[in-house]
Design a protein around this nucleic acid. Structure first.
Lengths: 221, 221
DNA sequence: TATCAAAATACGGTTTCCCGTAAAAACACA
DNA sequence: TGTGTTTTTACGGGAAACCGTATTTTGATA
C-alpha cells in the first residue's frame, strides 16, 4: 500500500491534477517538488528521519529557469535517489512515448512503472499506483503491445557518435582524425563507411540524411 | 469578460486542472472536448443556438486513438471554428515552445493568446484569460523577449520540400525530376543547389545533414 | 607460439555532390 | 515594345562520398 508519495514535476497544471488523483486514492502524505534538487533533498531528509517515501512520481524533463540545479532531469534524479534509498519505488509520468526510451528506463534504471501523459492518463496513473502498491511493475498499454514488434535498429554509442558528427557538419573524411584524437577505437575511414552502410542497410535507407532524420525522430540523438 | 468557455484537450490530467483554474476565475459555463471534431461540433451547436462561446482554449496536438477524426489538430480546429464563428477568441495551451511555431500562430492564425505548458502555467493561464477577457492579446513571457532577437532563418515551403526530400533519401540529382512531376516551379538542379547553399550560408552550416538536424530540432519539418 | 576467424584498414574506380561561371528565361517598368 | 534586372537553368571541373576488393591487424584458441 502506498502511503507517502513525493511528486517531482515542474508543471503547475500537472501537479494540481496529480494531487487530486492521489487524493482520490486516499494517499495521505503527499509532498511536491518543482525541482529535481529539491526532490532529492526531500527524499534524503525523509530517509534520514526514518520516515522515507514509498513512491516517487517524477517527470523526465524539467525546464531550466535560472535556478542552478545539480540534477538535470528525472533520470539523474532517480539515479541519485536510489543511492540514498535503494528500495524507493519509482513511477515515471512523462510525455515520452518512444519505445526505445521507455525500454531503457525499465532495463537500465529499473523503474517500477511508466505512465505516458496522454488521453487517459489520470486513469492510468491510478492503475499504476495500485499495481506498484502491490509491488508489481506497471507497463503502459502501448508499450506492452509494441515491445515485441519490430524493434528498430539499436544504435551503439559509436553509431550515435558518427551520426552526431555528420549532423554537426563534419566531413566523413575528417572523422577518422577526430576519433583518433578522442581515443575512440575503430577510427579508420573504411570502418566508418562500413558502419554507416550497415545502419542504412538495416533501416532500408540510402542516404546519411535519413539517418540523421531518423535519430532525431526517435530520440536516439 | 469571459463567461462561456470550451476546453479542447485530450489529456485528462490537464483537463482536470484547467477546470479548476477556470473555476478559480469564476467562469460559469465550461464545456470540454477530448476530440477536435467534438469541439467543432459544440462550437457550431452553440453558435446556431445563439449562445456562442466566448473563448476556446485548445491544445495544438491531439493523440490519435482509433476514433476517426476529420480535424487533425488544434490548427485545423481553429481554422474551422473561425469559419463558423469569426469573433471566437482563441487561447492556445500547448507544450510548444519554439518561437517560429508560436510566431506563425499569431501572424497567420490570429490567435488571441498562447500559454506554454511549463513551470507556472496555471498562473499564466489566469493572466491570459484575464487579458483576453478585455479583448487584449496575451503573449508568453519568453516569446516577448525572444521575438526581436536573432530570428532564425525562416524556411519557405519550397525549402522544407527540398530538405524533406533529402531526409527521405532522395538524391539531389533526382529532385528536379520529382519537382517537375509535382508541378513545383523552380525545378532546375542549379536552383536547388543554390537554395541549399543559401540556407546553409544563412545558418552557418556546411553540410545538408546539418539542415536536416536543424529542421528536426526546430520543428520546421 | 602457431593458426584461424573476425575486425579493421588501405586502396581504387565510379557516382554524387559542390561550386563557380555563363547563358537563358522571366519579370518589372517605363 | 524595349530595356534592365532578377531568377532560373545549363555546364564543367574538382572535391567528397560511395562501394567493392584486397590487405593488414587483432583476438581467441589450441
Amino acid at each position: 500500500m502506498i502511503k507517502k508519495v513525493l511528486v517531482a514535476e515542474d508543471h503547475e497544471i500537472v501537479n494540481i491534477s496529480v494531487q487530486k488523483t492521489l487524493e482520490d486514492l486516499a494517499v495521505q502524505d503527499i509532498s511536491y517538488a518543482y525541482y529535481c534538487d529539491d526532490a532529492l533533498y526531500k527524499i534524503t531528509q525523509a530517509f534520514n528521519a526514518g520516515n522515507s517515501y514509498d513512491l516517487l512520481i517524477t517527470d523526465l524533463h524539467f525546464e531550466a529557469d535560472g535556478h542552478k540545479q545539480t540534477l538535470s532531469g528525472g533520470i539523474e534524479l532517480i539515479t541519485a535517489a536510489r543511492k540514498v534509498q535503494p528500495d524507493l519505488r519509482i513511477l515515471i509520468f512523462s510525455l515520452e512515448n518512444r519505445t526505445a526510451v521507455i525500454d531503457n528506463l525499465y532495463k537500465n534504471y529499473h523503474i517500477d512503472g511508466f505512465v505516458a501523459k496522454a488521453r487517459n492518463d489520470a486513469r492510468a496513473l491510478k492503475e499504476a499506483i495500485n499495481e506498484i502498491g502491490q509491488y508489481r511493475n506497471y507497463y503502459p498499454h502501448h508499450y506492452r503491445q509494441s515491445t515485441n514488434k519490430k524493434n528498430a535498429y539499436s544504435f551503439s554509442e559509436y553509431d550515435i557518435n558518427i551520426i552526431t558528427l555528420l549532423a554537426q557538419g563534419m566531413l566523413i573524411k575528417d572523422i577518422p582524425k577526430y576519433l583518433q584524437q578522442k581515443g575512440i577505437k575503430p577510427s579508420g575511414l573504411s570502418t566508418i563507411e562500413k558502419r554507416l552502410n550497415q545502419m542504412k542497410e538495416a533501416l532500408g535507407f540510402t542516404k546519411n540524411e535519413q539517418l540523421v532524420a531518423y535519430c532525431k525522430d526517435t530520440g536516439a540523438m
